[in-house]
Design a protein around this nucleic acid. Sequence first.
DNA 1: AGTAGATAGTTCCCTTAGGGAACCCATTCG
DNA 2: CGAATGGGTTCCCTAAGGGAACTATCTACT
Lengths: 154, 154
Amino acid sequence: MQRTQFGQMACSIARTLDVIGEPWSPLILRDIWVGITRFDQIQADLGISRKVLAERLKWLASNAILERREYSATPPRHEYVLTAKGMELCDILLVIARWGDHWTAGQAGPPVLYRHHACGRISEVDLTCAHCHQPMRASDVDVLPGPGAAIPAI
Amino acid sequence: MQRTQFGQMACSIARTLDVIGEPWSPLILRDIWVGITRFDQIQADLGISRKVLAERLKWLASNAILERREYSATPPRHEYVLTAKGMELCDILLVIARWGDHWTAGQAGPPVLYRHHACGRISEVDLTCAHCHQPMRASDVDVLPGPGAAIPAI
DNA sequence: AGTAGATAGTTCCCTTAGGGAACCCATTCG
DNA sequence: CGAATGGGTTCCCTAAGGGAACTATCTACT
């Protein structure tokens, strides 16, 4: 398909999508996040083609999102674990899941719930301002060119 | 490519990706968010194929993310505006951009900055717990099956 | 009147990425 | 020994993305 590469754009969104923007990547990340860490487990859970799964895992590992770790030498067995960089990517999943819960769950209710370690309650994320701690949503901000703006694009 | 449809999975992440998971969709959303709202403007800004852009806009409009609005009758001219549902999707972009700023910006610095309306400062989002208002990151939660969990998947 | 330009797409062909099944190889279990 | 498990790789087929050309409508200029 000779797909356009996003990595060279002067845009943090495009550059992030270059890493996890391909179909399946976020779902693979989700599986590893919740503890589905082995090749065959992920393949069975998602129903993804083995070929595509192998490609994605290799790509994510080469971008330091995942680490391929041997947990048994004989027979050689591997699992994939998140790096710190990869764990921070999962923050995005939390926000994606919240939108899906709000807009696509229907009367059945959300498929999963999130329990917050700090307070022990079933909760959801709020987006707040790092400075004033008030809600900070997409509709609450102005977007301005920053120092890395080669071209005036986001 | 006979791509697998995510919409039927019992997973809010998969269902959200079914709406905006295809390549380009998040970047189209971003453009409209920051005020690039007309077909040719978006096409020029992103360098996307006109065919794919037309397909994406039609899909996003049919999913009530965007609205196609006539802003001039003679000649007939249209722009695309975000619905409330679409504006909430942009919250995801805010978090995606934060990750990109942290991990891909390099020494040039972030390409764009975000000014928070409430406090007027250049800031970034924090993810906090809706209950206890402490930080709530992907590493701070347990994932449990919820009422809509047909299959025990996230 | 004729022509150029802007807007918003649609149509065409070509290449390549994803799907799916089969295959491979090493080790361990019964 | 044969079967099962884990972790992939290889093959072919189809459909999705890229890119350029084409269409259509109205406005503005010469």
